[in-house]
Structure formats: C-alpha cells, structure tokens
Measured scan of single mutants.
Amino acid sequence: QTVHVKGVQYHFPNPEEAVKFALKVAKDLGGRVEFHGDEIHVE
C-alpha cells in the first residue's frame, strides 16, 4: 500500500497502517485523503 503526501511516497505492508497514517497526516496538514485503487493520496 502506497501513501502519497506532497510528492513523497510512503510504503506500508499493511493497508490498515497506511490508512491510519494517511488520516493522521491529512488531519495534521488540514488536507483530505483520496483513495485511488491501491494508492492513497493526501491532498
């Protein structure tokens, strides 16, 4: 599972961890989380 944050990719073997990370980052940055297939983008 890959999380993209402002052009940087973070790889997580566990999808659940990836989602938790993405939600935390989005909250910290005041952004939103978008799901694109296997990828999660924080915009």
Rank of each mutant, 00 (worst) to 15 (best):
K27Y: 11
K27F: 12
D28G: 08
L29W: 09
E16A: 11
D28L: 14
A26V: 05
I40S: 01
Q1L: 15
E17F: 06
E17L: 10
H36L: 10
D38E: 10
F35N: 03
V3T: 00
G37Q: 07
L23D: 07
G30F: 07
E17K: 05
V33W: 04
E43C: 15
F12E: 00
V5L: 08
K20E: 11
D28M: 14
F21S: 01
I40D: 01
D38Q: 11
A22Q: 00
H41N: 04
A22H: 00
G7P: 03
K27Q: 12
D28E: 15
V25A: 09
P15A: 13
L29P: 01
G7K: 04
P13M: 13
A26Q: 03
Q1W: 15
K20Y: 08
G30M: 08
P13G: 10
D38N: 13
R32C: 12
V25H: 05
G31S: 05
R32P: 02
V19I: 15
E39A: 11
G31Y: 12
G37P: 04
G7M: 04
R32A: 06
K6F: 15
A22G: 02
A18K: 00
E17A: 11
G7Q: 05
A22W: 03
T2P: 03
V8S: 06
K20A: 13
G30D: 08
K20Q: 11
T2Q: 04
F35V: 08
E43A: 12
V8G: 04
V25Q: 07
K27V: 08
V8M: 11
R32K: 10
H4K: 09
V3L: 02
Y10L: 04
V3A: 01
H41Y: 14
D28Q: 14
G31L: 13
E34A: 12
F21W: 13
F21E: 01
L23Y: 14
H36Y: 13
N14P: 00
Y10M: 03
G37F: 07
G37L: 07
H4L: 13
N14F: 06
V5D: 01
L23N: 12
V25K: 07
A18Q: 01
E17C: 09
P13Y: 09
K24R: 11
H41D: 03
L29E: 05
V5E: 00
I40C: 05
A26C: 07
N14Y: 06
V42K: 01
H36V: 13
L29A: 05
N14D: 10
V5R: 02
E43I: 15
K6V: 06
E17S: 09
K24P: 00
V8P: 00
V19P: 02
G31H: 04
E39F: 08
V5Q: 01
N14H: 06
V33S: 02
T2N: 06
F21D: 00
L23S: 07
V25I: 13
E16K: 09
F12M: 03
Y10P: 00
A18W: 02
D28A: 14
Q9E: 10
G37I: 05
Y10C: 04
F35G: 02
I40R: 01
T2H: 05
Y10V: 04
V33E: 00
G31E: 03
R32G: 04
H36M: 09
V8W: 08
V33P: 02
H4I: 15
V25Y: 06
A18G: 04
P15F: 15
Q1K: 14
L29D: 04
D38P: 08
T2R: 07
V8K: 12
E39Y: 08
P13D: 14
K20P: 02
F12H: 02
K20F: 08
V3C: 03
Q9T: 14
T2C: 07
E34D: 07
K24Y: 06
I40G: 01
L29Q: 06
F12R: 00
P15D: 07
V3D: 00
P13L: 12
D28P: 03
P15V: 14
P13K: 13
K6M: 14
N14E: 05
D38M: 11
G37C: 09
A22I: 03
G37R: 07
G31N: 03
R32I: 10
E39Q: 12
E17V: 07
V5F: 10
G7I: 03
H36N: 08
E39G: 14
R32Y: 12
K24G: 08
D28W: 13
G37W: 05
V8L: 10
P13V: 12
H41G: 02
E43L: 15
K20S: 08
D28V: 13
K20G: 05
K20M: 10
H41F: 14
V25N: 03
V42F: 03
E39I: 11
Q9W: 12
